[in-house]
Design a protein around this nucleic acid. Structure first.
Lengths: 337, 337
DNA sequence: TTGAAAGCGCTACCAC
DNA sequence: GTGGTAGCGCTTTCAA
C-alpha cells in the first residue's frame, strides 16, 4: 500500500480511504481517486487480509460446521449457504464433525481464533458448553437441523415431530399395523422429535411401538447395516419400516435387499429426508423431504441480519419450516387381510 | 499475551516461545514453561490468528475449490481432504464454483488475499491464467479430477481414458451394438478422456459412434433432463447408453424412466462414478468407480509435502489412479438377435 | 482535501 | 535462559 502512496506522492491514509470506498465520505478529490485506482489496477495490488483482520477484528468469514459434508443433505445445504454468503461478501470455512463432539469443540475453538464473524452449526450432543460460551461472547451463530434443548439460540429447523407423525400416520392409513422405526441412539433433538411423532401416531392407532436404535459407530457403517439386516431377519412380521434419516434409509434399502424382501410388496418403507435414490429407485420411496434451500437461505439470512445489526439487539429467531411429505410407491394400500 | 508476560514477570518473547513449543529448543527452564502453560489455561488465552498470519505469512489454511459440494463425489472427496488437513494442523476453506469460471477466478483471488498456504482445485475451463499465476507466485496447489492440458502442475486424476474404454468394451463384449455416450459440452480433460476411451472401443469394434452432448445450463437441470429424454425418444434403436458422470447418470435414469424403458431389458446402462443410487437401485448399475479416499488423501499428501519442503524443490507430481469397473445388473449379456 | 502516526497481537532477531 | 523491540500491512484518529 505504501508503494502506491509513495509513487503518487500521497499518504497511505488517502490510499486506504480510496480502497475502502470512503473517498467520497472523506472528501477526497475525484482526481486522486482515479489516480489511485489506476495504479492499483496496474500493480495488481490486493490488500492483505490478515492485516485488515488484525486491525478491524472483522474477517468477513463465516464458519459452517456440519455433521457430514459427504451426505447429500448437508452438502446441498452447505452449497446454498456458501452461495448466499459469497453474494454478501463473506467467505465460508466449512468443517465436518463426523458426529464427534471433540472434533466439534476443537473446530469451534480454532475458528474463533481465526476471528470468524459468525457460525452456522449442526450441534453434536454435549456441545452445550461451547454454545453457551459463544452466547456469552456475543458471537453470532445459528443452529440448523437441530437445537440444543434448554438453550435459547437462533435456529432454523424443521417440524420433525410433524414429519414423524405424518409419515407414520400415512403408513397406518394405508393399512399397515406392524410399523417399526429405525433411528439412531444419540438423543439429538431432531431424532427425538421424529420419534415422538412416530410414537404419537402409533399410540393413536393403538398398535404396538417397535423401535430399533442403531448405535453410531466410527467410520464404518458395515456394522450398522448388519444390525438393521439382523433386525429384519429376526422380525419377519413387520409390515412397514420407517427410517429416521436418509443415511439410515439407504442402509435400510441395502438391508432389505439382503433379506430378499421386496419393498412395497413384502414390506412398506418410508424415510426422513429425500435423496436421489429414494426418488428414482424402483419402487420409489415415500419420504418427508426437508426444504434444503430454505434451511440454508434462512440460516444465512438470520446470521447476516445479526451480523449487521449487532448480535444482542435482536431477540433469538427460531424458524421452524415444514417438511414435505412426498408419497411414492413404497407405501401402497394393504390389499386384503 | 502481554498480560500473561506481565503477570509472570516475563517477556512476551518467552511466552511466545512456550506457546509455539520452542521452549526446549530455546532453552527455557521447565519451571517457566509450566508457569506459563498454567496461566494460559487459567486465562483461557488463545493466540490471535490474524496477528500470527500477518507476522509469519503462514495461515495454516488450505483452499479447496470444487465444482459442486452438493455432489456426492465432491462431497466425499472434500470430507477426506478436510480430515487429513485437520490432522496435520490445517484448516480448509471450501468453495463450489458451480462450473462458473468467473466464480472460480474470484474465489482464487479472495483466497490468496487471505493468505491461504495452498490450494486444491478442480479446474474450470478457462482457468489457465489463474493457474499460471499461482505457479509463478510459487503458491503450492494440486489439481484434482481434471488437469489443464498444456500446463504442468501437480495433479491427482484417474485414468479416464481407460475407464471410458473399459466400460464401453464391457458393453460391446456383452453383445451391445448401438451404444450411445452422453457427455457434457465443456471440453474438460476428464470428460474428453472418457470420450476418447469410448471412441477407441467403438472403433475397434467397428460400430457406430453415437454421442449426445448435453450443454451446461445454469442452476437447473430440468432442461438437461429433457434433452436426454428427447434423445432417448428420438433414438429408439439404441441398445446401451453410457453416462459420462454420476450427475448425468442420475438424470439418465430419470429420462429412461420417463420413456418407460426398463434398464437391463430394453436398454443397458453404464455410468462413470459410483453412487448409492447405482449401487442400490433395481437393477443395480454397472459403473467405473473413482477411488474417492485415494484421490483426497493423495492430493492432500502432495500438497502437504510441497508445503513442507518448499514448492519449487520437488518436480510436479502427477498421480493417476485406476478407476474400478464394477459390473452389476444393468448390463446383462444380450440373449438372441 | 490530505497526512502523520499509533497500534491491532504476534514472532524473531539480537542483546545480555 | 531470558528480555527488548522492530515491524508484519492495514485502519483510523487527530491534526494540518
Amino acid at each position: 500500500m505504501s508503494d502506491i502512496a509513495n509513487e503518487l506522492g500521497l499518504s497511505t491514509t488517502t490510499v486506504s480511504f480510496v480502497i475502502n470506498n470512503k473517498a467520497e465520505e472523506m472528501g477526497i478529490s475525484e482526481d486522486t481517486v482515479k489516480k489511485v485506482n489506476a495504479l492499483i489496477k496496474k500493480k495488481g495490488y490486493k490488500p492483505n487480509n490478515a492485516a485488515r483482520v488484525l486491525r478491524t477484528g472483522k474477517s468477513n468469514t463465516l464458519a459452517l460446521i456440519v455433521e457430514d459434508i459427504g451426505n447429500s443433505f448437508f452438502g446441498n445445504v452447505s452449497k446454498i449457504i456458501e452461495m448466499v454468503a459469497n453474494k454478501n461478501g463473506y467467505k465460508v470455512f466449512f468443517s465436518s464433525t463426523e458426529c464427534d463432539n471433540q472434533i466439534a469443540k476443537s473446530l469451534i475453538s480454532v475458528m474463533k481464533q481465526s476471528s470468524v464473524d459468525g457460525f452456522i452449526i449442526t450441534a453434536t450432543i454435549g456441545l452445550d458448553e461451547e454454545i453457551l460460551r459463544l452466547k456469552k461472547e456475543e458471537i453470532p451463530f445459528v443452529l440448523i437441523d437441530r437445537i440444543i434443548p434448554g438453550i435459547e439460540t437462533d435456529s432454523v429447523t424443521i417440524d420433525n415431530f410433524s414429519g414423524g407423525y405424518q409419515l407414520t400416520d400415512h403408513l397406518i392409513s394405508q393399512g399397515y399395523k406392524k410399523i417399526a422405526l429405525v433411528t439412531i441412539t444419540n438423543g439429538m433433538s431432531q431424532m427425538e422429535d421424529r420419534r415422538l411423532g412416530y410414537k404419537k401416531a402409533i399410540e393413536e392407532a393403538k398398535i404396538e411401538e417397535r423401535v430399533l436404535e442403531v448405535p453410531i459407530i466410527d467410520n464404518t457403517n458395515k456394522d450398522q447395516l448388519e444390525i438393521i439386516s439382523k433386525y429384519l431377519y429376526d422380525n419377519k412380521d413387520i409390515d412397514a419400516i420407517f427410517f429416521a434419516t436418509n443415511y439410515l434409509g439407504i442402509l435400510g434399502i441395502e438391508a432389505i435387499k439382503e433379506n430378499r424382501l421386496q419393498i412395497g410388496k413384502d414390506i412398506a418403507m418410508v424415510s426422513f429426508d429425500d435423496h436421489d435414490l429414494f426418488r428414482l429407485m424402483n419402487p420409489t420411496i415415500t419420504v418427508a423431504a426437508q426444504p434444503l434451500e430454505q434451511i440454508g437461505s434462512r440460516a444465512i439470512a438470520i446470521l447476516l441480519k445479526k451480523l449487521k445489526k449487532g448480535y444482542t439487539v435482536i431477540p433469538p429467531i427460531n424458524e421452524v419450516l415444514a417438511p414435505e411429505i412426498i408419497i411414492r410407491e413404497s407405501t401402497p394400500t394393504v390389499k386384503h387381510k
